[in-house]
Write a protein that binds this DNA or RNA. Structure first.
Lengths: 248, 248
DNA sequence: TGGAGCACCATTGTATACCGGGATTGTATG
DNA sequence: CATACAATCCCGGTATACAATGGTGCTCCA
């Protein structure tokens, strides 16, 4: 049952020992969720987390509270917190909200990219392409996420940028949940390059449209037909998940 | 120094005693902020809050963490939490974000209002008008907020609805901060009626435009000329605030 | 008289102890 | 063999104690 946290514990860069603050815990968990090392429904027991990060439950609780507020985790009274696993309706809503907000963000950025930012985005798009060519899906996801995250961080409107950051995270969750098992990668060739071209070309509405079709394509890759949580277990068995997300 | 919490304590409906959960604390604080009984910069000491609600610091801390995550309060290490007081840049960003999101929400709702919802919105608009006519600004604000909050709650896209709810709250904060002292009311006559008309008429883009001009008018009422936090103190002295927000 | 240094107090950060609820597992019975 | 019941264990909820930090006001000296 305890399962996945052991992986976290010594499997990768999380914590590795002593004295993390709640800020660091949320950041680590967010990164783990983004890179899909923490699948939807994963249990997040306070004590286990505390031991993993070398702190007591107090700080873990604070971190969990923040994660719940960000819709990264869900918490029902007297039950262990879990990584959120939104149903299909919420998934569609998340994509819809993200189309709106990321569209606006890129529209606002269009034409005013610094040289450094343009180069960074280009490098990220290139890195994604390279990783895909090599078949390194994990690195490809990381680059793709970094691309979008870069947009969020450099949003002229920081409020929208923060919202976009949360939405990107939630998108990662639902992708992990609803990606068809037979789909090797969610790579959409050239989309990021095209978007970048629009961003520097200086056509806000065109850039907005680019982002929205990009997100539409992404959503279209997902298997959103299940009538909400019914065949859920079947889907879970399809991929190699442990029982850590039993009753999600 | 301690000031404003005593007002809260026995001045109005907050707490009045025993055994509140963090949920209730968050809700009460949100309501108090909305109705501007808790001005920006107000200190929120953990012990005082705990006594007011009859709980210990643990639950207060959880509530504060959530309020901070929602940008209602700010918290710097080893210092008392305070109600947020955004600078003018952030204020503009909040309005901008709200125009985008509330515009989309009403566009989505247009044409599909239930009879009950239509009546409720009409009643709220009417209540606001009546309160304004009577010069009861507090009740007017409450009705106005309820109108927008009603939109947020009934958003077909619940994610956007939740975002809008937060934005409405933050808008209340910046209005309290930047409303010119000589302005008796932020009432925009007929705006809500017109919006409701557009909502039932079935013109999404028209409704969106209505909301956006409404919010533009509201933002235009504010005094956003100060070069960010410089004359801030002057503005604070202008209104009759106690020293509870000294170094905000 | 004014400024710098210091001590005290207010308030937060962290850990821990105790309580209570829920889930799981084992057992007995139909 | 299935199901219902019961005990146990795990885990979260709350309160409290202790440590640490920052702010305030006082005093002392120039």
């Amino acid at each position: 049952m305890s399962g996945s946290w052991q992986q976290e514990r010594h499997g990768n860069d999380i914590s590795s020992g002593s004295r993390a603050s709640d800020e660091q815990i949320v950041e680590q968990v967010r990164r783990a969720v983004l890179t899909q090392r923490l699948p939807p429904g994963t249990r997040l027991p306070e004590v286990a987390l505390g031991e993993a990060f070398g702190v007591s439950r107090s700080v873990v609780r604070k971190a969990l509270t923040r994660l719940v507020a960000n819709h990264v985790a869900v918490q029902r009274p007297n039950q262990v917190a879990r990584i959120a696993s939104p149903d299909v309706d919420e998934t569609r809503e998340i994509f819809s909200a993200r189309r709106l907000i990321e569209g606006e963000v890129v529209a606002l950025m269009t034409g005013s990219l610094t040289q450094a930012l343009r180069q960074r985005l280009a490098a990220l798009a290139e890195a994604e392409k390279a990783a895909f060519a090599e078949g390194d899906e994990e690195r490809r996801i990381e680059a793709s996420l970094a691309f979008h995250h870069c947009l969020a961080e450099h949003s002229p409107n920081r409020t929208l940028g923060a919202m976009l950051g949360d939405l990107i995270l939630r998108t990662s969750i639902v992708i992990a949940l609803y990606k068809p098992a037979d789909l090797a990668s969610c790579y959409l060739e050239g989309d990021h390059d095209d978007l970048l071209a629009q961003l520097v070309a200086g056509q806000p509405d065109a850039a907005r449209a680019r982002v929205q079709t990009h997100l539409n394509s992404l959503e279209a890759l997902l298997d959103l037909r299940t009538p909400t949580g019914a065949i859920d277990l079947g889907a879970l068995f399809g991929r190699g998940q442990s029982l850590s997300q039993a009753d999600a």
